[in-house]
Design a protein around this nucleic acid. Structure first.
Ligand SMILES: NC(=O)c1ccc[n+]([C@@H]2O[C@H](COP(=O)([O-])OP(=O)(O)OC[C@H]3O[C@@H](n4cnc5c(N)ncnc54)[C@H](O)[C@@H]3O)[C@@H](O)[C@H]2O)c1
Ligand SMILES: NC(=O)c1ccc[n+]([C@@H]2O[C@H](COP(=O)([O-])OP(=O)(O)OC[C@H]3O[C@@H](n4cnc5c(N)ncnc54)[C@H](O)[C@@H]3O)[C@@H](O)[C@H]2O)c1
Lengths: 248, 248
DNA sequence: CCGATTTTGTTCGCACGTTCACAAGCTCCT
DNA sequence: AGGAGCTTGTGAACGTGCGAACAAAATCGG
C-alpha cells in the first residue's frame, strides 16, 4: 500500500541493466553448481566444466554470465567464490526475503517444512490459513496464523513475496488480498489463472501441466514405435460441431 | 573430435506432426479453461473468450489450436466439448497414465494425497521409498513399497512416468534406476541436474528457483524506486581472481 | 439470393533465445 | 622475451515464438 507506486514503465532511458528472462531463470542453476564446486574445495572453474555441472551449453553459459559483467579470466576460467557472490548479488540473494504461505494444506505444509528455502535466502515468516480450526496449530517452527491477520503480518515483516497454496477457487481472492496489502510477487500453486495489476509478478507452478507435457511426449514416443499400426483411434465422437443446416 | 551430427536420431523424417513446445505447454491450460466453461454449461466459445479464460492473447490461442487441425467454425467459434476432446486426445489424456512416486517425504506425501492428478488422467500406482522403516506405511490409498520392488512395480503397471521427490544427492541414482527399469519420462523435484540417455524426457520443478526469479524482479523494482539514492554497493570483494602462485 | 457481420486460420515482420566460431587476453614454458 | 596453449567474451547466423493484421469461411437478416 505504498502511496508512491512507481510505474514499471521502464523506458530505456538507462543503459538498461536488464538481464534476459531466460538468463535470469538459469542463474540460480549456476549458483547451485558453483556452491557444489565450492563445497568440493574447487576454487576455479572453466565455462566448460561449469556448463557441464549445470547441464547447459558452455556458450550459453558464457553469454549468460557476460550479462552480469566480465567476471572471468581468459585462459583461466571463473573464480568460483567470486562468481558465486556476483550471481547472488544480481539475483538479490545477499539479503533475506521474508515470505508468507497462504493455504496450509498438504502442499502448504510440505513447503513450510522444507529447509531448502532458508538456505537459499528465503525466510518463511508466516503460515496463513482460512480454516479457523487450524489457527494456532504448529507446523514446523511456526504456528498457523489467521487469515484476518494477513495485512498486519505482511506489513510487520515487510513481506514482498507470497505463496498461494489454496484450492483453485480461492486463489484469485487470496491473490487480490495479497496484492492489496502490498505483496508484489506471487508464486501460485493453484491450477488457476491469476490476474494481477501491473507491477505485480506472478509465477505459477503447475504439476498437472508438467505431467501432461510429459504425457504428450510419451504418447508420441509410443506412436513412432507403432508407426504404421496405430490402434483404432478414429475420432470417436462425431464432429457434432454444427448440426448440418446446409440442407436449407 | 566429437562428431557434431548431434541430430536427434529419432526417425522424425515424417511430415512431423510435431507441435511446438510452447504450444504443448499451453494446451493443458486451454483444456482446463474449456472444462470450466463446459461445467458452466457453455457449449460454444470464441477464441477471444477462451483466450481471456486462459490468460493469453487470442491470436496465440488460435495459432496454437491450428496446430491440432481446424476444429473451429468461422463466424461461430469452437465447440467446447469437441475441442476439449481433441486437445485431450492430442496430449494423450484419453488414456490413463500410471505414475510412480519415489521418495515419500514431505513433498512426496503431499503429491500422493493430491486428488488433482487422478482427475486429469494420471493414476499414482505406487509410492516407493528407500527407508525400510516406512515400507508398509499407509499414505492416502496406497502403502509405501520397498525400493527393491521398483522393477516389478514398473513392469506390472506399465509405468512410463516417474516422479522423483528424494533428496538431491539421491536423485541421479534414482533416475538411473528408473530409466533402467523402463521409465522414459521423469518429473524431478530434487534440486539436481539429471542426466539421462537419449529418448528419456526430464522435466524439473524447482521451487527455490521460482522464488529466486521472483526475488530478482523484486529487487529490480526496489532499485528503480531508489533510483537516485542507490546504497553504497561497490564490489565489496576484491577481484581475488588471480591467485599469484609464486611470484618470481 | 445477397450483403453485412462475425470469427477463424494464416501470413508476415519482429523480438528473443540459442549456437557456432573466432579474436582477444591471460598464463606458462622454453 | 616470445610463442604455444587455453579460455573468455561476443558478433553473426539461425531458429523459435509472438502479436498484428487480414483474407477466407460461416451465419444471419432482409
Ligand atoms: N498437494 C499437491 O501435491 C498438489 C499438487 C499440485 C497442485 N496442488 C494445488 O495446490 C493447492 C493446494 O493443494 P493441497 O493439496 O495442499 O490442498 P488442501 O485442500 O490440502 O489444502 C488447502 C488449504 O487451503 C486452505 N484454504 C482454503 N481456502 C482458503 C482461503 N481462501 N484462504 C486461505 N486458506 C484457504 C484450506 O483450509 C486448506 O488448509 C491446490 O490448488 C492444489 O490444486 C497441490
Ligand atoms: N518439501 C518441499 O516443499 C520441497 C520444496 C522444494 C523442493 N523440494 C525437494 O524435493 C525433494 C524432497 O523433499 P522433501 O521435503 O519431501 O524431503 P524429505 O527428506 O522429507 O523426504 C525425502 C524422502 O526420500 C526418501 N529417500 C531418500 N533417499 C532415497 C532413495 N535413494 N530412494 C528412494 N527414496 C529415498 C527418504 O526416505 C524420504 O522419505 C528434495 O530434493 C527437496 O529438495 C522439496
Amino acid at each position: 500500500m505504498t502511496p508512491r507506486n512507481r510505474r514499471n514503465s521502464t523506458r530505456d532511458e538507462r543503459p538498461d541493466r536488464g538481464i534476459p528472462e531466460a538468463t535470469v531463470a538459469r542463474l540460480p542453476i549456476y549458483l547451485r553448481a558453483l556452491t557444489a564446486l565450492s563445497e568440493q574445495g574447487i576454487t576455479t572453474s572453466s565455462s566448460e566444466d561449469l556448463a557441464t555441472s549445470a547441464g547447459v551449453n558452455s556458450a550459453k553459459l558464457r553469454k549468460d554470465l557476460s550479462y552480469l559483467g566480465s567476471y572471468g579470466t581468459r585462459g583461466v576460467g571463473y573464480d568460483v567464490d567470486y562468481l558465486r557472490y556476483q550471481i547472488a548479488r544480481e539475483i538479490g540473494l545477499t539479503q533475506d526475503w521474508p515470505v508468507v504461505i497462504v493455504g496450509i494444506g498438504n502442499l502448504g505444509q510440505a513447503l513450510a517444512n522444507y529447509s531448502g528455502f532458508a538456505s537459499r535466502g528465503f525466510q518463511i515468516v508466516s503460515l496463513i490459513d482460512a480454516d479457523r480450526q487450524r489457527v494456532g496449530e504448529q507446523v514446523g517452527d511456526l504456528e498457523i496464523a489467521a487469515y484476518a491477520d494477513l495485512a498486519e503480518i505482511v506489513e510487520k515483516h515487510g513481506v514482498a513475496i507470497g505463496v498461494i497454496a489454496t484450492p483453485a477457487p480461492a486463489a484469485q481472492g487470496v491473490c487480490d488480498d495479497l496484492v492489496a496489502v502490498g505483496v508484489t510477487s506471487i508464486l501460485n500453486f493453484a491450477p488457476a489463472v491469476l490476474s494481477v495489476p501491473d507491477g505485480v509478478d506472478v509465477r505459477k507452478v503447475d504439476l498437472s501441466i508438467e505431467l501432461q507435457i510429459l504425457a504428450y511426449h510419451e504418447q508420441r514416443k509410443a506412436m513412432s514405435d507403432d508407426v504404421l499400426a496405430p490402434p483404432g483411434l478414429p475420432v470417436p465422437e462425431p464432429p457434432a460441431v454444427t448440426v448440418e443446416v446446409e440442407s436449407a
